[in-house]
Amino acid sequence: MLRILRLPALDQVIEILSAQESETLLMAGGTDILPRPAALASTRLLIDLSQVAELQGIALDAEGRIRIGAAVTHQEIVDHPLIQRKAQLLSMACSSIGSVQIRNLGTIGGNLANASPAADSLPALVCLAAEVALASPRGIRFLPVSAFILGPGRTARAADELIESVRIPVVTGRRVAFFKKAGQRRGMCCAKASVAMCAHRHGDGRLTKPRVAMGAVAATVISVPAAERVLADRVLTMAVIEEAAAACCEAAQAIDDIRSTASYRRHVVGALLTEGLAEIYDHMQDLARRQARRRRRRS
C-alpha cells in the first residue's frame, strides 16, 4: 500500500532515508516519475520533497557560489535575476525544458536525480562547473555534476542521501554562452541532442576557458575537451568554429532510438555548436564594429 509523506524539513527526510525503508521513492515535481504508468506500482513510501524548506531558494552561499535548492523549479531558475546575470547558460537551458507547465513543476534536483542523458539542464551545469550537494546523516558532501551522473537513471547518490542543492561558482568578466537543442519539433520536446557552451570573451575576439558539453549523445552528459582545446585562447573565426564542431561530432557516442538516429545525432551536435558559435561570432563582430565607430568618433 502506497503511503505519501509530504515533509516540511530536511532533517525529517534524512531521518527516514537513514532508516533505510525499502521501496522509498523521493519525488519533487514528479514530471519524470508520474508519466510512467508503473512508477508508483512498487513504491511503498513516497516522500514529497516539494515543500521541504531547505530545498528552496536561489541565493549566494557562504563561499560566494550560487546555491539553487534542489526543489527549485525550472521556471524559477529561468526567471531569477541572479541566474540571468551570473549563470545565464542555465537559464537558457532550463527555458527549453518541456512546456511552461512542466517547468512550473519540474525541479533542478529532479532533473539531476533522474539522470536522463537527454536532460536539458545537465550540459549547462557541466559547463558551469556546478557541484551537487548531497545531504545525509554524515553531513553534506559535494560532487561535480559529471561525477554525480553515472549513467541513464544512475547517479552517485547513496540510498540515505538526498540532493540538497546545486552550487555554481560565480565567474566574473565578460562571458558568452549558448544552449542549443535539436528536438522532434520546436515546441515542447525532448532533446535528440543538445550542446551547451560558455566561455570568457575578450575584446580581441579571443575566447578563453571555453567549456562545451553535450546531451543525448552518450549514456550521460559529456563534456568535450577536444572542442574546448580548439576554442581556447583563439580568435573566433568560422574556420575555428568548423574545427570545434568536428571535435563535437567526433566525441559523440550516439545511439539510434525512437527519437532519432545515431548518425544524425553525431552530425547535429556539430551543427548546433556551429549555430551557437556563429551567433557569438556575429555578436562579437558587431561589438567590435561599434567599438571602432566609437573610437573614430572620439578621435
Binding site: 505519501i4 509530504r6 514528479g30 508520474l34 511552461v100 512542466i102 512550473n104 513543476l105
Partner: peptide, 19 residues
C-alpha cells in the same frame, strides 16, 4: 488538464492530489 495552482500553470495530471 492545465489548471492554475497557487498562481502557477500546471498539468493537473502530473500533480498528486495528496501533494
Amino acid at each position: 488538464c492545465s489548471v492554475i495552482m497557487d498562481g502557477k500553470l500546471v498539468p493537473s495530471c502530473l500533480v498528486l492530489s495528496a501533494s
